[in-house]
């Protein structure tokens, strides 16, 4: 089961974020540009971190930005943002972050295949530095094993 399609519009490489909120907002922008969410979803991803802390930083250098399903999710998908300068989220072990995966799902069950596939990719410890260094959207899709369109 491959990842959902990852169009160029949902990939933003070597971007400038300033701080963690800026970085999560870039992930939200990429999800919106990719046609997966409305702009409101970025605010909800930020609220999750404000409420529960930096637990979304699930591995060194990597944040999985996400929120619950909601009316602002148009279809399930992922977005990829890499940062020119890493930002600190406040995680005790995994800061700083230079790769963000934005995840949007329409239902709580259907995310399971997507996250299982993400787990496959990132169980290879080389994937995070490879994404951070990826020069093109095509290279990002190659690392993730994702296609550009259906």
């Amino acid at each position: 089961m491959p990842l959902p399609p990852l169009p160029d519009a949902a990939i933003n490489l070597h971007a400038g974020a300033g701080d963690w909120r800026g970085a999560v907002r870039l992930a939200g922008d990429a999800l919106t540009e990719g046609g997966f969410t409305t702009e409101a979803y970025a605010d909800r991803m930020i609220e999750v971190i404000e409420e529960f802390g930096a637990y979304v930083v699930i591995a060194p250098g990597l944040a999985l930005a996400h929120a619950r399903p909601g009316p602002d999710v148009l279809r399930s998908g992922i977005a990829v943002v890499t940062l020119a300068e890493p930002v600190v989220f406040g995680h005790p072990h995994n800061d700083p972050v230079n790769v963000l995966i934005g995840l949007a799902v329409t239902g709580t069950e259907e995310h399971v295949t997507t996250v299982a596939e993400l787990a496959n990719v990132f169980n290879n410890a080389d994937s995070i530095p490879a994404l951070a260094a990826a020069p093109t959207a095509e290279r990002v899709r190659e690392i993730l094993g994702a296609r550009a369109a259906e």
Partner: peptide, 19 residues
């Protein structure tokens, strides 16, 4: 356990099963 119940807890579940 994760904050939103989708995403990170799913990854933790998958990898716990593998471990």
């Amino acid at each position: 356990i994760c904050g939103a119940g989708v995403g990170t807890s799913g990854i933790l579940k998958v990898n716990a099963e593998r471990a």
